[in-house]
Amino acid sequence: MEYIVKTSNLSKHFGKEVAVEGLNMNIKKGDIYGFLGPNGAGKTTTIRMLLGLMKPASGSIHIFGQDIKQHRKNILARVGSLVENPSYYPHLTAYENLEALRKIIGVPKKRIYEVVETVRLTEVADKKVKGFSLGMKQRLGIAMSLLNQPQLLILDEPMNGLDPSGIIEIRELIKRLPEEFGITVLVSSHLLSEIDQMATTVGIVTKGKMIFQDSIEAMRTLAGHTISIQVNHAEQAWRLLLAKGMKVEHENDFITLQESSNEMVAETVRLLVQANLSIYRVEEEKRSLEDIFLSMTREDSAV
C-alpha cells in the first residue's frame, strides 16, 4: 500500500515532557484523515514535524514516499498547510499577503483570485488584515494553504472561529477536494462530531500516542454494537467471562461486551446460563461516537 503520509515511531519531547511518542500515522491517497485528540495530545506537534518545522527526536516521516529529511523542499512544494492560528502580516491587505506568498511559490497571479473566491474573501481582499474578524483571518489562512495547489493539505483545527455557515462552507470545500482535485487532506480537531462529518479515516491520539487508527466506518461499528447484560451476580459473571479470555467490563448489575458479533453474544449467554446465573436483560447499547472517543481518551486523558 502506497501511503501519502507515513510516519514510523515518531517521537518528540520538550525537555522532559513527552509530546509525541512512537506515533505511526498512515494516510492513504484521497483520504480525508481526521486527526483527533484532546487538548495537549500532540496533534500540532506531529503536524509541525510533518511540515519540517520541528525535527523529530526519533522516528521517520515519509510524505509522497519521500523522506522529509532529504526531500523537504520537494515535499513542501506539494503541501499546503495551516498550523494553529493563521499567520499573516496585519499591516498588509489580504491580497498583499497572498502576493507575498505567491512570489515565493511562483504560481500565476490568477491563482490568488481563485483562492480568494474559494474562501469568499473577494470583497475584503483589499483591506488590511489588521481589521479582519477572527473568521475572516481563518479564511485567509485557508486561502494561503490552497495557494500552491497542494496535493496534500494539512489543516490544524481549521474550523476555529468560523461561524456556522463558514463551518459548512469549509467542510463542503474539504469534502470536495479529494473528489475534484485528488487532494489528500489531514484535518486535526478535538471535536469528533466535526471529523465525523467529513473524514474517511480517523486517527486518535492522546498523550502523544496513537490509540486508534482506522476507517470511520470501523469506528462507527465500534460505536453501534455494545452489548450489555444484566445478571444477578455481575461480579461473578464478569470473572467467569474474563477467565474465558473475553473482553468484558462490569458496572453495577451490568456486564458489557466489547465484541458484539452474534456468535459472541450466544457464547456469552450460554456460559452464563451454564454457570446458573440469572440473566435479566440483554441489551444492545448504541454508544455515540462521542462516548467512544471519550472512553478511549479518558484512561490517560491529558486534561
Binding site: 523542499k73 515535499i75 503541501v79 498550523v83 499567520s87 502580516y89 499591516h91 506568498l101 511559490i105
Partner: peptide, 18 residues
C-alpha cells in the same frame, strides 16, 4: 517583530524554500 507578530515563521518555513 513582523514575523513574530502572528508567528509567520511557521508559514515561511513550511514553504518549499530552504
Amino acid at each position: 517583530s513582523i514575523e513574530n507578530e502572528t508567528n509567520a515563521w511557521k508559514q515561511l518555513i513550511a514553504l518549499p524554500v530552504s
